Simulated assay, not measured.
Amino acid sequence: MTAEPDDVTETRTAYDLVAEDYAELLQDDLAESTYDRVMLGAFAELVQRAGGGLVGDLGCGPGRIAGYLAGLALDVVGIDLSPGMVEVARRDHPAIRFEVASMAALPFADGQLAGALAWYSVIHTPEERQDELYAEFARVVRPGGVLLLAFQVGEEVVHLTHAYGHALELHTRRQVPERVRSRLAEAGFTVQAELTRQPVPPEKSPQGYVLARRELD
């Protein structure tokens, strides 16, 4: 049996630890995030225009984005590596299905999803394994389906030792938009729109969003 990568263990442990406080601190964040709502609204509209269907929130955390998308009439399922986060998501959004799973091995059949989003969730995977994530996204999103990514923009690997009121160990990796576009193209997606906005305190880096469509076979 292959040993779990250290970064996966670190990420799960950190988010299990902060799950309750993370959910509380960010529960009203979307109400103050115009660009977040704009990109999520565009994603929802594109999914619906393409015929609708199941949408995967990949790295769903406590379910706040899944809950917002459900409010936009999408059929959403959330997955997260952290059992603690999934427990909070199930409690706070009982009408939505949430499962514990890795983004590197998604619990969906080939082409099962009409759309997927990875909302600040590719950021914990080292660069050398991110191609695998994009390939897995392409496997589960049907041709013509939609993918939305959100991430911090930059080159740095940030080592967190304290976050959400807890001492912890967690690494986040800012993303270079050009590299993101290249990975999407290699995996079989075509970029439809891209937005970079300036940071709003306490953010320390620009924030990036990319909407892409799975290429038709």
Rank of each mutant, 00 (worst) to 15 (best):
M1C: 12
A3H: 15
A3N: 11
E4G: 03
P5R: 09
D7Y: 15
E10V: 02
R12S: 03
D16K: 10
D16V: 05
E20L: 03
L25C: 05
E32D: 10
D36C: 12
D36M: 06
D36R: 05
L40H: 05
L40W: 07
L40Q: 02
E45C: 13
G59I: 00
P62V: 01
G63N: 01
L74W: 06
V76C: 03
V76Q: 01
L81C: 00
G84M: 02
V86Q: 03
A89I: 04
R91C: 05
D92Q: 15
H93P: 11
P94D: 10
A95I: 07
A101D: 00
A105F: 02
A105E: 07
Q112V: 08
Q112F: 07
L117V: 01
A118C: 09
Y120E: 02
V122N: 01
V122S: 03
H124R: 01
E128F: 11
D131I: 02
L133Q: 05
L133M: 09
Y134D: 01
V140I: 08
G144Q: 05
A150W: 04
F151K: 04
Q152Y: 12
Q152T: 15
Q152P: 09
E155L: 13
H159E: 14
T161P: 11
Y164N: 06
G165K: 14
L168S: 12
L170E: 03
L170V: 09
L170W: 04
H171T: 11
H171D: 10
R174W: 06
E178P: 00
S182Q: 15
R183D: 06
A187S: 04
F189N: 02
S205T: 15
P206Q: 08
A212W: 06
A212D: 11
L216R: 15
